[in-house]
C-alpha cells in the first residue's frame, strides 16, 4: 500500500488505537472487553503500521520483538495462575486485594487482571509474529529429504 495519506496518518492513528486497546483490556472484567480483544486491537494497530510503512519500520516502532512479548505475556499469566498455590488454594483461584489510590479511591487489584494483562501481551506477540512471518517466510533449501 503506497498511499501518501495513509503513510502520514498512521503515526497519529496508531497510538490512539493502542490507548483504546488498553481501555478495552481494563474494562474487561465485568463488561465486554478483556485481554484477548484488547490484544487484537493492539495487534491491529501494528498491522496497520505494517501495511502503511512496511515490516521493518513496524519492527522498529515496536522496539521489542514479538517473541519476547509472547514470553512475557505467557509468564505473567502463568504467575497469576500460580499465585493462589502459594496461598494454599488450588490453581487459578482468584485473589483480590484492595489498594488505596489517591484521587481514585479504592482500586481492586487481583490475579484476574494480571492474567488478562498476560493474555493481552501473549495475543499481541503471537499475532504480530505470525504477521511478520507472513512477510518474511522463506525456505531453507528447496529440495526436501525424500
Amino acid at each position: 500500500m503506497n498511499s501518501y495519506l495513509i503513510r502520514m496518518t498512521v503515526p497519529w492513528l496508531c497510538p490512539f488505537l493502542l490507548v483504546m486497546s488498553i481501555w478495552i483490556l481494563l474494562r474487561g472484567h465485568n463488561a465486554p472487553g478483556g485481554g484477548f480483544i484488547g490484544g487484537l486491537v493492539a495487534a491491529a494497530a501494528i498491522a496497520f503500521w505494517c501495511f502503511a510503512r512496511g515490516v521493518e519500520d513496524a519492527k522498529r516502532w515496536m522496539r521489542v520483538s514479538p517473541l519476547h512479548l509472547m514470553i512475557a505475556g505467557v509468564s505473567t499469566a502463568l504467575i497469576s495462575g500460580l499465585m493462589p498455590m502459594f496461598a494454599g488454594k488450588p490453581m487459578l483461584t482468584a485473589l483480590w486485594h484492595k489498594v488505596e489510590v489517591p484521587l481514585l479511591g479504592k482500586l481492586p487489584l487481583g490475579t484476574p487482571i494480571l492474567f488478562d494483562i498476560g493474555v493481552f501481551f501473549a495475543v499481541v506477540g503471537v499475532t504480530t509474529s505470525i504477521l511478520f512471518s507472513l512477510e518474511e517466510f522463506e525456505l531453507w533449501n528447496r529440495s526436501g529429504p525424500s
Binding site: I130, F137, E138, L139
Partner: peptide, 13 residues
C-alpha cells in the same frame, strides 16, 4: 493464521 503462512510458503516455493 499459521496455516496461512504455510500456504504462502508452499506458494512461494
Amino acid at each position: 493464521a499459521y496455516f496461512l503462512t504455510l500456504l504462502q510458503g508452499a506458494y512461494k516455493s
